[in-house]
Computed example of a mutant assay.
Amino acid sequence: MASTSKATVPGGPSLGRSRPRYGELIIKVILVLAAVVSVATTIGIVAALLEPTIEFFGTVSVVEFFTSIEWGPLFNPPSFGVLPIVVATLLVTIIAMIVAIPLGLAAAIYLSEYAKPRVRKVIKPVLEVLAGIPTVVFGFFALTFVTPLLRDFLPFTLDYRNALSGGLVVGVMIIPTVASLAEDAMSAVPNSLREGAYALASSRMIVSLRVVLPAALSGIIAAVILAFSRAIGETMIVVIATGGRSIFTFSPAREMDTMASFIARAGSGDVPVGSIEYKTIFAVGALLFVMTFLMNYVSAKVVRRYREAYE
């Protein structure tokens, strides 16, 4: 009876079982560990916030916390209405997005559709360097340059520390986030769509706005939501430029205290550990975490809704 053997191709690889690839196994383990660390970090944050927050609401009424317009947990007597700092946070964030969205999208359209490859290789890294500037530098820039400039040219009176100046500079800070991610999404649009539009005698502007922009909409929305989350949690700029006065107002000309700036100031002060004032930091942090989580959740839903798949 003839014996069987594994077939081989002369000069080619063996069709038998190859040697174990330990390098790929190591890489796979590293990637799994990275994913586990990310999930564990999120769980750790939730665990750290949960117990002090529950203890806080065991003393302070939830209704008072979410409906009162008096915020002064470090005063005597204390007041725990979170609305003033929530409004201030949203006001600064909205001002920042008004600055960042048009400028960031304009930069993305230019880099993706107008700039030559050599120009893009220079401008995009320079733009991304803006994201590496420490936020404390942005804060002092807002306080010492932007605010005096606004006070000279605006017809109404600004407080020396105000939400308008802080919001404008936060917007400048997040421009690279919008521009870089939106440009990546637009560059991923197949050239066949552009060529088809040009074949119909469309101008470059029409191709950019009516073909490329809608095709990259999911990536652009993700960039905007990520920038929004980045702006809502910004700390140093608002600590320096926006101030720390907890008043309920919708005027960007007034000094305000945002959620992030309150956490920074209260956490760096002489608040006794375990006191109700100390637990207020965790309650505000938990609220900020929930707001950011909801924004990311909505972003994921919207991206899946408008995602375009190309072959």
Rank of each mutant, 00 (worst) to 15 (best):
L105M: 15
V126Q: 09
F80G: 09
P52A: 00
A34E: 08
P84G: 01
V62S: 04
F80R: 05
L90M: 15
T41G: 03
I123Y: 03
I98L: 14
L111P: 08
P84H: 02
P73F: 10
P73C: 13
R118Y: 10
G81P: 01
K116C: 03
V46K: 00
V99K: 02
A47G: 05
L83Y: 03
K121N: 14
E70G: 08
L103D: 10
F75A: 15
E55G: 04
A34D: 13
V92K: 01
G104Y: 11
G72C: 14
L33A: 12
E113R: 11
P73S: 10
G81F: 04
E113T: 07
T59F: 10
L74W: 10
I98V: 15
F56P: 00
A115L: 13
K124W: 00
I85D: 01
T42K: 03
I85L: 11
V82N: 01
A47Y: 09
V63D: 13
A47V: 08
E70A: 14
P77D: 14
V63L: 12
M97H: 01
A115I: 05
F66S: 10
P125I: 12
V62I: 11
E51K: 02
L83Q: 12
E55V: 00
A107I: 07
L91M: 15
P78G: 11
T67S: 09
R120E: 14
T93P: 10
V63W: 14
A48D: 08
L83S: 05
L130V: 14
F80K: 00
W71E: 00
K116W: 11
V129H: 11
I85M: 10
I85V: 15
F56H: 04
A106N: 07
A40R: 07
V62E: 06
E113M: 13
I94S: 08
A115Y: 11
L105D: 11
L127I: 12
T41A: 10
F57L: 07
V60Q: 03
I94P: 02
L103T: 14
E64C: 06
I85Q: 00
V92Y: 03
T53V: 00
L90S: 08
V60M: 03
V39D: 02
K124T: 13
F80S: 02
G72P: 07
